[in-house]
Amino acid sequence: MADEVVIALTPRLRVWVAAEPANFRCGIDGLARRVRQVLAEDPFSGALFVFRNRRHTAVKLLVYDGQGFWLCQKRLSQGRFRCWPRELPGQVLAPHALAVLLSGGDYAAAGGMPPWRVLA
Rank of each mutant, 00 (worst) to 15 (best):
G79M: 02
E41G: 09
A18K: 01
G27Y: 08
V17Q: 00
A32I: 01
V63Q: 11
L93K: 00
R33C: 09
F51N: 05
R54D: 08
R117L: 08
M1R: 09
P115A: 06
A22L: 03
V35T: 02
L13G: 13
V6N: 11
F24A: 04
E41I: 10
P21R: 04
G66W: 05
P43G: 02
V100Q: 03
C72D: 13
E4R: 13
D65F: 07
L13T: 14
K60Q: 14
L39E: 00
A32F: 01
L31D: 07
M113K: 14
P11Y: 15
R34G: 01
R80P: 10
W16I: 06
F49Q: 06
L76Q: 04
L39G: 00
I28C: 09
V6C: 15
V50I: 09
L48G: 03
G112I: 14
A22T: 06
Q67T: 12
A110P: 03
A19T: 05
F69T: 10
P95V: 15
D29A: 04
P11S: 08
A8F: 13
S103W: 10
P85A: 02
R80K: 15
H56C: 13
P21T: 12
L93R: 00
R117C: 06
C26A: 13
A109D: 10
G66E: 05
W116C: 12
G30R: 00
G68R: 10
T10F: 09
G46I: 07
